[in-house]
Amino acid sequence: MRLLRAILLRLATSAVTLAGVAVIVFVVIRVVPGDPVSMMLPPGATDDDIARLRAFYGLDRSIPAQFLIWAGGVLQGDFGTSITNRQPVLDLVLGRLPATLELSVLALGLAVLMGGVAALTGTRLRGTRTEAAIDVANGMALSVPDFLWGLVLVLLFGVIFPVFNISGRVTPSLDLPFTTNFYLLESILRLRPDLVADLLSHMILPALALAIPLAAIIGQLLKQSLKETMHLDYVTLARTRGYGENHVILREALPNAILPTLTLVGVQFTFLIGGTVIIERLFSYEGLGNLAIDAVINRDLPLIQGIVILFAVIFTAVNLIVDLACVALNPRLRHG
């Protein structure tokens, strides 16, 4: 019951946050000078043409009126029409969302894997040179953001050892049998290892670029909490019972050290998703972020609004899910 109330409260706060995001985006886009409509017409267009187009997109009304019309539409699932593509924003955005989600989740998986292995190895070999080397690598990975890692990876595995693809999501000449836009998921479900390999060869570098900084954070934090846990009495007690180092780390220390890391991973995962914007651009990956930059450059207002709101919804949802996961994993909260 208390849990349910906490969830409802969180949902309410999230709604306020999202409303705030909507207002800010809407205002920011409209307060500033620059008329997208005049940009989309050929140079010879008359004032009359411009006025008609403005009316079509509702740009001739006052800003509060525009907002109300737009917000009313959003609540019914209508995000307006893209100015450049002349398609419903929702269709465009949902069409690209799977690509970005697959990339983000792959990156998250890589980050957890790399960070987890680094933390466990560092704990197992504490006090050795290996631990010192892991710490140094961690520090490096942490100091440099995903954009730069992306460029380094382009050079390393795109040019010097050209083993992976550095642009696009999938080789265009391939015959694609997909019915949804979740290419990776679908090719796994359809048992098509050839397609999985091609998709991964495109996704691995952008995913790594996104994953490296997060892996460093996970590695650092998890190792720190593991180290603290390793000194606790129940770990010592497990040693006296005849258990070896591996069991002590994995079974006794890890379940307790994971919680603080998990909370942080949630926040950091939203940063990772935010990072897809530039990383997708860098690797010409046809996801939401790439679409967003095109929309900004073309001043496609309805599309920008739609994308920013969608990002905000994803961020909020991730935070909510992480909070719930923490409750589910913590016996203290679960069995109050």
Binding site: V21, V25, I278, G289, I297, A312, F315
Partner: peptide
């Protein structure tokens, strides 16, 4: 604090690109 929460819900890179595109 509320302002910080709202800000944290923005994708920062996209937001900066948006701002610069809008301001010029």
């Amino acid at each position: 604090s509320r302002g910080i929460d709202i800000w944290m819900a923005f994708p920062p890179v996209l937001f900066s690109i948006l701002l610069v595109a809008v301001i010029g």
